[in-house]
Amino acid sequence: MDVTIIAETTVDGLHPVTSQLVGAAIAIGGTPTVLCPGGLGTTAAASISGVSKVIGVEGDCFNTFDSGAWATALNPLVSDGVIIAASAPSGREVAAQIAAMRGIPIIQDATGLEAGITVTRGIYSGKAIEISTVTAPCAITLRANAFDAAGGGGSAVVSTVNQSADVAVAVREAIAKASERLDVAEADIIISGGRGMGDPANFSHLNDIADMIGAAVGASRAAVDTWGEIPHGMQVGQTGKTVTPSLYIAVGISGAIQHLAGMRTSKYIVAINKDPDAPIFGVADYGIVATWEAALPALKEELGKL
C-alpha cells in the first residue's frame, strides 16, 4: 500500500514528528514516500528507517503559508493510497485541502492506527474515544507523540521536483513572539498554572522550574480568562491545546472538565493543589495536597539535585 507522508517541517528543516508518521505508516504495512514541502529536511527524511523515497517539492509558494497553494503544489505528487500528515496546524489544513481536491475522506488527529485501516481518535476533546475503519484512498493526520518513531539509518533516494502554485495569502507584518518559551503543543514536559496561582506574576515560579527541566509553561482557561498577561497560546484544554506530554504538572488547577479533556492523556500527571477534593487529583498519578507557595520551592530544590 502506497503511503504519501507530508513531512512536517520547521524553519530549521524536518520536524521530529515526521519519524513518527513514518513509524505509523510502516506499522500498517505501508510503503512510505515522504514529500518535503519547500524542499526542507530532505536529507533528514531520507535517513529515517523504512522510507522508500523522498521528494523535495520546491516552489515559491512554500515561502508563505497558504494551505490552498501548498495543497495544489503537493497534490500531483500524492499517490492513490493513504495520505498521512501531522496533526499540527499546517499539516491538518494542507491534508484537508488535498483530501477535498481528491474527493477523499479525511480523519484528523488519530491517536491509534492499525492495518485495515482502523483509526482511533479522541472526540469531544478526549471525553470519548472513537474507533472507525476506512479504506484507501483516504487522508489521516496523526497526533504528535502518540506513535512510535521509526529509527534512523535509512538511505532513501532523494529527488527534487519544482512545483509551485498561485499564492492567495500575503504576509503584511510579522509579529515576534513575546517570549522564546517552548510551546505547550511541542513540549515533552509541561508545567501549568491555574487561578490558584493567585497572581500572573507568580507564573515566574513555573518559568523557573520549566527552565530547569526543559518544560513548557501552560495555563488553565480560568487563568487565561482572568489575567490578560497569560496568552491564549498557553491554554491547555478544550478551547485551548490538547497535549500529550510525558509529564504534566498541574499547579493550582482544580481540574475543570474542559481542562481535563486537554491533558488527561498525558503519560504521567502530577497535581499540586491545596484542596484535597480538587477533581485534578482524579486523573493525577501523583497528587500533592499543598499550597503552591510551599510545594514549588521544594520542587525547585529537589529538581536542582538531579
Binding site: 474507533i131 475503519t133 488527561r264 487529583f281 486523573v283 493525577a284 501523583y286 497528587g287
Partner: peptide, 18 residues
C-alpha cells in the same frame, strides 16, 4: 469508505498516589 465502529469512554486511569 469511513465506517464508525464504536465509541467508548476514555480509559480509566488506575487511582494515583496522593
Amino acid at each position: 469508505s469511513v465506517s464508525l465502529q464504536s465509541h467508548s469512554p476514555p480509559p480509566v486511569k488506575p487511582p494515583g498516589q496522593k
